[in-house]
Design a protein around this nucleic acid. Structure first.
Lengths: 181, 181
DNA sequence: GAGTGGACAGTCCAGAATGGACTGTCTAGA
DNA sequence: TCTAGACAGTCCATTCTGGACTGTCCACTC
């Protein structure tokens, strides 16, 4: 494994490569903030993982880290040519795996006590409210997206699917609430 | 930690408790199959994790495992009263955390090379097809659901949200394909 | 200029998750 | 009786995870 550039990498690794490629050099900390305001709306990467993953990418030669001259001497990450190539290969690869929707409310609905109609109605009300909040957030994001750089066109399209899901979720939970309340 | 019944448990643990509670005693292997045909459509739990988790649940006194008399002497899991109580407490707890939609296609769309319109169109076509397949599968599941026990009413409602998401995803990817193709 | 609190930036760490390989037993079929 | 494949579970090395911790910087106050 060590030193091999043919080894596959985690999803977080490609997210890091992709963001550095499109947005240019960033420190890990800033990259983490960038992810929180974008990809993080649909796919999260834990703090420690970011640091571990960038170490692995550096070892594999897919990124290069330069220390800043002043202040804290933060490490600024640059994607290498090998990194760009690996990113592109991954990107063009046939996708495997299916969408996983990790929604705790949905899991709780599935595991509901069959005798507890009132509990289900209450769960549904809470979920409807939470999803309505998320919907409002995505609506704001969609407004921002209309002012985005044309080069970010594809990236901002992802907000549309988020909007659709949240609209569906609000409607779904309201209907569950109506049926069990 | 060891022996404490106040300790929080993982999501997988509650899934196991919930299924044993509603569906009655099962071996781990069968439970795993049950999950694959239900919860597994929106939330997966790896094989090894099932075994590790049931060990932890047993240690915590939330499940009891009896060996079958004949054949392989498989371990049949029963939920205990403590287990039912823990499940209910979790179920009634305010939900935290937000829905995570781990969709590799969506991530790739976000990370698309801004100059590669044709690549985006191709990705979109593949994704539209994959989601259409999933939609067909969920449509079949929804048909099954109409014949289900009334006691499974809430559980089968989860298929509705899956259907809505997949319909939205198909429409979304077709629209992306049209825009970038 | 000195002191200070909080933000920044990253590291540590123990337990859990993960995926694939492996092992032994059972069972149906030849 | 033998055998191949399914069943049922274990092993294991690596990575993930979340929270705690540490040291430095920097803006503000005195």
């Amino acid at each position: 494994m060590a030193g091999s550039t043919e080894r596959d990498h985690s999803t977080a690794a490609y997210a890091i490569l992709g963001l550095l490629s499109v947005h240019g050099p960033h420190t890990i900390y800033d990259l983490k903030g960038l992810i929180e305001g974008s990809i993080g709306y649909f796919w999260t990467f834990p703090h420690s993982q970011m640091y571990a993953e960038t170490k692995r990418l550096e070892t594999a030669g897919l990124i290069r880290a330069d220390a800043e001259a002043g202040g804290r001497g933060r490490r600024v990450l640059h994607v290498t040519d090998d990194g760009r190539r690996a990113l592109e290969a991954w990107w063009r690869r046939e996708d495997g795996g299916e969408t996983e929707i990790r929604d705790l409310g949905l899991l709780k609905l599935f595991l509901a006590d069959p005798a507890d109609g009132a509990g289900v109605a209450e769960l549904a009300a809470r979920q409807a409210a939470a999803h309505a909040e998320r919907l409002a957030l995505y609506t704001d994001l969609a407004d921002d997206a209309t002012r985005a750089e044309p080069s970010m066109r594809a990236a901002y399209r992802t907000v549309d699917l988020g909007l659709s899901y949240e609209r569906a979720a609000v409607a779904f939970w309201r209907s569950v609430e109506a049926d069990f309340g």
